[in-house]
Design a binder for these strands. Sequence first.
RNA 1: GCCGAAGUGGCGGAACAGGCAGACGCGACAGUCUCAAAAACUGUUGGGAGGCAACUCUCGUGUCGGUUCGAUCCCGACCUUCGGCACCA
Length: 814
Amino acid sequence: MIDKYDAVAIESKWQKKWEETGIYKVDENSPKPKWYALTMFPYTSGDLHVGHWFAMAPSDAYARFKRMMGYNVLHPVGFDSFGLPAENAAIKHNIDPKDWTLKNVENMTKQLKSMGPMYDWSRVVVTCLPEYYKWTEWFFLKLYEAGLAYRAKAPVNWCPQCQAVLANEQVEQGRCWRCGTVTTRRDLEQWFFRITKYADELQNHIGINWPERIKTMQYNWVGRSEGVDLTFKIERDDLEEKDITVYTTRPDTVYGVSFLVLAPENQLVEKLTTPEHKAEVEAYIKKTRETSEIDRLSTEKVQDGVFTGSYAINKLSGEKVPIWIADYVLNSYGTGAVMGVAAHDERDWAFATRYGLPIRTVITYEGYDPAVKQAECHPEPGIMVNSNKFNGMESTKALPEIAKYIEESGWGKRTVKYKLRDWLISRQRYWGAPIPMVYCDKCGIVPVPEKDLPVLLPDNVEFKPTGESPLKYCEEFVNTTCPKCGGPAKREIDTMDTFMCSSWYFLRYCDPHNNKEAFSSEQIKKWMPVDIYTGGAEHAVMHLFYARFFAKALRDMGLVDFDEPFTRLFNQGTVTKDHDKMSKSRGNVVNPDDYVTTIGADTVRTYLMFLGPWNQGGDWDDSGINGLYRWLNRVWNLVLTPFEQKAVDETAEKDYARIMHKAIAKVTADLEELRFNTSIATLMELTNAATKVRDNGNVSKMLYDESIKSLLLMMAPLAPHISEELWSRLGYGYSIHQQDWPKFDAELAKDDAIEIVVQVNGKLKDKLTVPAGITEDEVLALAKDCAKIKSALDGKTVIKNIYVPGKLLNIVVR
RNA sequence: GCCGAAGUGGCGGAACAGGCAGACGCGACAGUCUCAAAAACUGUUGGGAGGCAACUCUCGUGUCGGUUCGAUCCCGACCUUCGGCACCA
């Protein structure tokens, strides 16, 4: 009598044994080739939900697969643990963010362990601990030394709800990415990283295998454009400034300029405004400042602005044009000033028609007639007109010519601009890595010396959402001495963006206990770059972008020797419940614990992998998960039922060997490409075939045993507990997870009888079972002999035959 | 508006160098077991028409066209859904 499959008992038993025997500890001295399988580390938000499992169970299965394929696998885990949620929880429940966070780490560790992963728990990295953030601070100093960190006053995105500055990447549609509140703007002294230095390199993804989608998003985020910085002469004698510089990508339209527009925040605006326009301009600037980003965006069709009262001269045409201000011009892009070419730019057209500004056609369009007024905007290329010596040229050819002419005449120069801005890392918050900088009245900004790291976060801080760092009121923290002159000084009170912590954690995994360096170059050389990185696509322009910047900066400092940190990137989809995003507010969050404690982790793991393609995600369905539980039970009963060999049937023996080897080939190929769903489908088919063979007893025991062994080995990465249990019950040695992946024999997988599909005019009529090496003529002869084919051909003329060897015959008739 | 991904049974999804559409699983229906139910096991299961029957015919991969002996797959136009960007001059 077979005992029942008791998943819960089996799973805790093996998890304990795995831990005791340390089979998942990374072997530093293994001669096998390395494989670095990285999963985005979870944020310490409290509970592990099924979304975490969906990210972590399949990636664990893949790491296990790679290990069985003969690699020395590094598959680490850690916790992203600095940041706003901890501080918010602290404010709300009046507890220490550290306590809250570490409690979550403990809880999440327990939950993660219940999944039965092959993490090496001795390598766990927790970013909020001093032994980690010491090095985060150290990297700040390194970036500062390299000239990649600087302090500047800048208008910043401000979330009134979170009372914090947000990076551009953290503002979505003018709203805070975390709480959804409409953001406003503020001027503050902030620390920036010069990420724009690497704009060109970050835009392209050379030699790495990433999803097209993410590459495109990053490409557009960098937003490189080539154009011309062009000067217009200010028609005023009383100003120090002689010129206004505009940026344009369309120098071919320069003879059509009929006005200039400056961003309201442009420094020149105050000087250019004449007394009679002052009131109007100031009112407009005030309105712009008070308008939130989202309102500014929502007015997208209304292009409003005001006239400054001043004029400028177009140096190419000598024409005099009015200078306006309007909020559709962004001060943070280009030069904060644009030339208005109403005839050939949609926005300028809207602006000019609203205020009755002139429209000058300089490029022809379909139906162009010099005698007829242009009726609509034409941004498309054409033939140059009203453009002096460039008349008659194609505008696409004139563009570079005019750019050259502008440069040679000294009126401007060709430039490249990016949408990408430098990375603002200052956060007016407590729960983050301190910025290791000191302000001294005598010496100015002074970095904290390396030997004094880490700058520790003080305990006993009062949390008030004031919009300033709570560290401001912690005198023992703020007041210090200047490392340079020894005089009194104050510490930087802002902390670093948490994305700084996550920009290098994968490097720390390579050498997690090093207390002399962030990592040794030896360990980095051994493990980096990451062979496969899996995680959510929501990090496309945040974490993934910053981590790449970081790697390039470290490379240029000589600390690492690779260009790209992640060779292959794979984004899993999202798990929904009833086709809705899971969220606490909807109350539809699936807690994996409920299933793990009843039907077991192996069922949850395999169910998540069977849902559908990993990159598409899927919908959690309680009845669907039973299918996987049933399968594991079927495997359980199959393996533990003794096989009774009866008379061996040669054909059955050959067929079954073929099924087994085909299954091995298919599962191997599918797992390699992270197609877990079809891998499991194949294993189910093998289970079904084995069940039939066992009932018939018509194959040799040797083959049968081999097939069961293969089945268990292939299940091991997916369902590590049940496969280990059955492996041990069959008397094979511990552990299944240290075995080699089953080999498949191409000869045995080959069909010796094949099925040829016979079509008439592309429609299926019959199937022929023929020997593998058959010729076209033989097939044709056989086909014409079939009753079905005969009747289909009856009274028709055969025009030709299409033969696909081993597959298909199509007889074309009329 | 621009960029990207995707539309296949009642459901999740298979099959894609152009060659048997619907693997595998869920659900449903029928049966076995049971006093009964659950569980488990066995069988059936895209639509329509015909036949006592094994079966036969026919329509079917978002819509409309096209290329081809042959299209879920390639091309063109469109519709829908989901992501991302959004005055970047």
